[in-house]
Write a protein that binds this DNA or RNA. Structure first.
Length: 426
RNA sequence: GGAGAAUUACCCAAGUGGUUGAAGGGGUCGGUCUUGAAAACCGAUAGGGGGUGCAAGCCCCGCUAGGGUUCAAAUCCCUAAUUCUCCGCCA
């Protein structure tokens, strides 16, 4: 949610910034509502003050033996006159709220406008692996190594779902455990949130109202709940409607959850196997900071996500996203992208974003400034740390050997009972 | 799933229609006393959102949330959320 004061003060500038996010809008109507709203407030509240005064005078008048029916009639008359304006005020407040709620976050000013085509690779680590033999893709490897059973996944569920089997399940779980242990080392607090969230949580995270159809809704519960598309949705709602103490910030959380997404839209044929499914595992980091702490927190989160990929020994790059490719609720995003040799493409394994006060405003997440005693909005940030569904294929493909085996990254071996190599099954 | 009870400020809690502008206690903060502390005593402590104003201030809304009744609601009515107790069912 944007601060309407920003729009009042400089509508042209806000318009221009939103345009970089590929969002065309006009504020004339909003600003006229805003003016009308203040007019109505003054008239409605003035009348209320008068009504309050009259009502309060009743006990004294009664005691003095005066006829109070005139006071009753007068209050009723004012109330009747006020009713129409009150109704209009409510309508106009709803309109303003809905307008503001639909706007995306403002992009940081240093970002390029436009979509994906303006993303910039700002860092590349490692080299594309070269194979002296015919390399296999991760689907083939996962099958030959007995790690993933796509057929039985389709049988018991359907398209877009798979089964991790045996060492595949252990590799997947080793990744999750490795991530968890790294975050614990860095002093982040481990959270296991519910996977069923209410409408308000989706709103605060910025997924709703625009992306209501991108998540799975549960029938049979009233009011309705949805299954989380990312743990971020749960984590940024933890302190909804709370005022935190300044010394409690920054708060650093991480959570492991599966993520459930409809991913309505086109599947690219290259996205085989587990590149894009309805359900995938992810460890997510979220920080709550003071306004002036969010830039540093952003760097920290990017660094953490990167270090996980680096410690696994994978070849990856970091991209600074253009304003139009950043998600609705975010002001700034860097993607960590890992190289998938079979398709020759870098795929996102982590998206680190600074939401600034956009989510905090929607959820009234504030802290008390120690010096002034005033409340201020927190900043919220999130970064995957990491999603396994692209790391798993990347490991299989980047670390495959000529004999069809795959080397297990050293950092994962302790979490896999010391297994160093995944060998093809007979 | 069924029945009942509860929800008041940082915490506990009084309050069943009209100076409630919410008692009282605890805690916290400040002060007196003290070498320092404790104790005792004195004082402060409703947060938040909004309107108006240069400001001081004034006004509106806030007793879980949303509606309603009334000249007037923490108080009466309806709906919802959450918590607790009991029963049922279950991991």
């Amino acid at each position: 949610m944007l601060d309407i004061n920003l729009i009042r003060e400089n509508p042209e500038k806000i318009k221009e910034l939103l345009k970089r996010k590929l969002w065309d809008t006009d504020f004339d109507e909003l600003l006229s509502w805003d003016n009308r709203k203040r007019e109505l407030i003054q008239s409605v509240e003035g009348n209320k003050a008068e009504m309050n005064r009259l009502s309060a005078s009743v006990p004294a008048a009664k005691k003095a033996g005066e006829d109070v029916s005139k006071i009753f009639a007068k209050v009723k008359e004012i109330a009747a006159n006020n009713a129409k304006n009150e109704e209009e005020l409510k309508e106009i407040e709803d309109k303003i709220f809905n307008f503001l709620a639909a706007l995306p976050n403002l992009p940081d000013e240093d970002l390029l406008g436009g979509g994906k085509e303006n993303n910039k690779v700002i860092k590349t680590v490692g080299k594309k692996p070269e194979f002296s033999f015919k390399m296999k893709d991760h689907v083939e490897l996962a099958k030959s190594l007995g790690l993933v059973d796509y057929d039985r996944g389709a049988k018991i569920s359907g398209r877009g779902c798979w089964v991790y089997t045996n060492l595949g399940a252990r590799l997947e779980w080793a990744l999750v455990n490795f991530f968890i242990s790294e975050h614990l080392k860095d002093g982040y607090e481990f959270i296991l949130p519910p996977h069923l969230l209410n409408e308000e949580s989706g709103f605060v995270a910025g997924q709703f109202p625009k992306f209501r159809d991108d998540v799975f809704w549960l029938s049979g519960l009233e009011p309705q709940r949805f299954i989380l598309p990312t743990a971020e949705t749960a984590l940024v709602n933890l302190h909804r409607n709370e005022i935190l103490a300044e010394e409690d910030l920054p708060r650093k959380y991480f959570a492991y959850t599966p993520c459930y997404r409809r991913e309505a839209g086109s599947y690219r044929t290259e996205e085989r196997g587990m590149i894009r499914g309805y359900q995938f595992n992810k460890v997510e980091m979220v920080q709550y900071t003071k306004a002036d702490g969010s830039d540093a927190a952003f760097e920290e989160l990017v660094g953490k996500a990167e270090s996980l990929v680096a410690k696994l020994g994978l070849h990856y790059q970091v991209s600074k996203l253009a304003a139009g490719d950043i998600s609705h609720a975010m002001a700034r995003t860097y993607d960590i992208e890992v190289y998938i040799p079979s398709i020759g493409i870098y795929k996102e394994v982590s998206s680190a974003s600074n939401g600034r006060d956009y989510q905090a405003r929607r959820g009234m997440v504030r802290y008390r400034d120690k010096e002034t005693g005033k409340t201020k909005y927190c900043h919220t940030l999130n970064a995957s740390g990491l999603a396994t569904s692209r790391i798993f294929p990347a490991i299989l493909e980047q670390f495959q050997q000529e004999d069809g085996s795959v080397l297990v990254p050293e950092v994962l071996q302790p979490f896999m009972g010391g297994i160093k190599v995944l060998k093809p099954i007979e």
